[in-house]
Design a protein around this nucleic acid. Sequence first.
DNA 1: CTTATAAGGTGCAAAGTGTACCTTAAGGGG
DNA 2: CCCCTTAAGGTACACTTTGCACCTTATAAG
Lengths: 199, 199
Amino acid sequence: MNNSGRNMRRRGDALSESIYDATIEMIQKVGYTNLTFQQIAQAAKTSRTVMYRRWKTKYDLIREIMVYKMTNILGGELIDRIEDTGSLRGDLLQLLTLYQSIYAEIGPEIMNAILFEIGQDRKKKIEIEVNATNKNILVMRKLLGFAKNRGEKIKEVSDATLTLPFDLIRVENLLRKDVIDRNRLELLVDEILLPVFLA
Amino acid sequence: MNNSGRNMRRRGDALSESIYDATIEMIQKVGYTNLTFQQIAQAAKTSRTVMYRRWKTKYDLIREIMVYKMTNILGGELIDRIEDTGSLRGDLLQLLTLYQSIYAEIGPEIMNAILFEIGQDRKKKIEIEVNATNKNILVMRKLLGFAKNRGEKIKEVSDATLTLPFDLIRVENLLRKDVIDRNRLELLVDEILLPVFLA
DNA sequence: CTTATAAGGTGCAAAGTGTACCTTAAGGGG
DNA sequence: CCCCTTAAGGTACACTTTGCACCTTATAAG
C-alpha cells in the first residue's frame, strides 16, 4: 500500500471510512444544519462527484455511518447481547448501559440529526416504527422473560410501554445537558423502570 | 384599513403574523431543512431584507412563532392552568392533555425543528434546562402537592424524574406515528406515571 | 497486458445567503 | 395638517452550495 505518491486513488472501504471520518469531523465543527457535501469532500480529500454518486442526501450518509458504527460496536443484534444477570434490576441496568454505549459511540450530533430527519418525514417514521421499535419490544420481552422464569412478579403492560427504557435513553441524550453516568442509569431503573414493570 | 391599493405597506403585528403564517405554510410544504428566508419572504409577499433585520436564523424565527402560539393557546403560564381534579390520576391526565394540546397547536414540524436545534447546541440545551425544565418541575410539584393534601401516598423522587410526564409527551409526538388520543394518554398515566409517583 | 470499474476533474446554471445602500410608505407628534 | 422619524421595500453584489453532465484516468481483477 503506497500512499506517498502524488497519485494515489483510494477505493471502497478506505475511501468510505475517510469520508465517514471527515463527516464526523465536520458535523462536530459546524453542526448538521451547516454540513455540506462540498466541505466533507474537501476534508476527505475527495470530490463532490464521488459523494453524489453514493448518497443522495446528508441523511443517507449519516444513516450509513450510524449503521456502520452500530455493527462495529455491537457485532450483531442487541437482543443477542442481553443476558440473565440474576435480577430484573440488573437486567434493566445492563440494557440501559448497553443502549447508552451505542448512543455514545454514534455520537450526539449524528443521533440528533437522524432523529430530526425521522421526525420530518412520516414515511421514515413508519419505517422506523416497524424496524427499530419492534426489535426493541422483542428485547424487552426477552428481558422480562428472564424475570418471569426467576419467579419475579411482572406486570402485564402494553407493547408501547415496553419501549420505555429506550425512550428514556433518547430523552437523556437529546434533551439533557448532564453527562449520563452509572448513577443516572441506576436512578432511571430504580425510580422509573422497576415501578413500571415490577408488580 | 385599505388593502386594495397597489401600494400598501404592512407593519408591526400584521406583517409579523403574515410572515408567521407563510413560515408555517412553507415548513409544512418543504420541511425545516429546505426552509429558506427567500421562500418565506416570497410567500409572505415581503422582502428578505425585512426578515434579515428581525431574525438572524431560521431558528430565531420559529422560536418566536412557538412563543407566540404558546401564549395564544395558554394565555399565561402552564402552572396556573393546573387544577385539583380530586385524584392524582385525574390531575396527571389533565396535565398530559394540556401539554399535548400545546404540542398540537404549535405543530409537529416546528416542535421537531426546535428540539433539533436545541440538541445541536450545548448553549441552547443549558438555556432550556434552566427555563423550561425548571418550570415543568414546579408544575409537577404543585400537582403532587394536591395529592399529598388529599392524603394520597406519593413517592419521594428526584427532580429529574419529575419531568417524566413532559418527556413522555415529547417522545409520543416526535417518534411515534400513531395519533395521540385520550386512550393513549390514559395508558401513559395508568401504566407509567401512576406506578412511578404513587406509593 | 487488457479492460471494466470507480474515482477524480471541470464547467455550468440555479438557488440561497448576508450585507450594503438607497428609496419610500405609514403614522405619530408638534 | 404637515413634517419627520421609523420601518418596510427594492436593488445589487460577492460568495457558497447544489445537482448534473461530460470527460479523464488510476486501480485491480482477469
